[in-house]
Design a protein around this nucleic acid. Sequence first.
DNA 1: CGCGGCTTTGATGTTCATCAAGTAAAGTGG
DNA 2: CCACTTTACTTGATGAACATCAAAGCCGCG
Lengths: 231, 231
Amino acid sequence: MKSVDTPTNCMQCPLRSSLFESLGRKELSCVHLNKREVVMEPGEQLVRSGDKITHFLYLQSGLLKLFTESDSRREQIISISRPRDFVGLLNIFSDTHHRYSMSAITDVRFCMIEVDCIKQLVDNNGFFARELLKNMSIAVDHILKDSYNLRSLQMHGRVAYVLYELSTEIFGSTGFELPLSRKEVGQMVGVSTENVIRVMSEFRQDGIIRIEGKKIYVLEPERLRLLTIRG
Amino acid sequence: MKSVDTPTNCMQCPLRSSLFESLGRKELSCVHLNKREVVMEPGEQLVRSGDKITHFLYLQSGLLKLFTESDSRREQIISISRPRDFVGLLNIFSDTHHRYSMSAITDVRFCMIEVDCIKQLVDNNGFFARELLKNMSIAVDHILKDSYNLRSLQMHGRVAYVLYELSTEIFGSTGFELPLSRKEVGQMVGVSTENVIRVMSEFRQDGIIRIEGKKIYVLEPERLRLLTIRG
DNA sequence: CGCGGCTTTGATGTTCATCAAGTAAAGTGG
DNA sequence: CCACTTTACTTGATGAACATCAAAGCCGCG
């Protein structure tokens, strides 16, 4: 973890979330004064479950994973955070300590804002609070949707689900560099590493995807989508 | 669904949630004027997924289930709401329509408060907003915890998980009347009805529980608890 | 009474994790 | 830069876990 030398000024941040639109000059400058800007490398761990919650994290660039760590062999990935996400928003208001761990998947850059600063904003600015509720709601919806969709699928559908979401939601392109190992794909959807590989091979043989090292090309998005809803 | 003739006055409601502590007389009377009080019988459906969100529901007594209904054969139960829960709080701020369905498990009695009324409170009262965030956070935490705990267990652990939670969290007693059918237990944890029965029989034969019709007595809570964390 | 839903038990087959074993790729220290 | 270790990836074989099918008893309800 390395602090950025020349942090962005919040007032003119090009990545500024809609969440902050409702803030006045004074409130925004308070955010600015109570934040740090940080970069991390792939694999570095930002948060360990059980750590005290001290900051509110806003991801500027890169990808993070949120995961459980109870048993190292049975690590489960809960969600992937994307640029412009508030990370680990889930239990910031219900808990003093993090419930899940976070690691950088790619190079990442993010802001750290003191939680007390955020709590004050909630208390004093109802519109901000409502935006925050909305933000949180959307994040949760997404996690639950995935979680319950996956539960009704078996392994082919599950692997298809990951590939389809990466293609449509994370990268917005049929071709992309897979940011996860086969093992991590398995940990996202509850399939063993070996079977992730087998299923991906089948998809390749069936002409649904093309694999070139870490690069994945979705050749038949529609067939992939169908797999995510019926098996 | 039947409206209650003599609704409780919110000002002196004995069930009043901590959420409303921060409200002044005027705000509370606004809630009072914008609410209905309703009772329903077991099996009645309050909400169908896709319905417009018009009210904020506060459960006074009884149990509700929140479930997916995409495929009737593959209904999945997401959570059980208890008295004093705000029901379906999850997507009230991110969505205009319900994403999940709700049914009464037992006889239930609840209040329906106009969502616009709640939104106004959030906008005007930061403390209320913060309490709401906290409430929502806790509800979500609980659902995610269950969801990811269950994913790491196989069927014995899963069934044990339901029984243990019912005993400790819902009823707070080692003896209770099982409010769910075997099928519903299965839908909560992703196990077939037949296997729920088989596992419960094994637990009975092993002396972990006693079954008398709908009544369940947990004879060995500790063994049940161990099953929920290791298999 | 008979019908449909819930419960129960046994038998069968599928899905999938796990084990084993080998290859490729990527870091590590001399 | 090369031997060495470790980690990721791949394939096949095996067995366990579990869904599904089938059949029968049970209960509440119209």
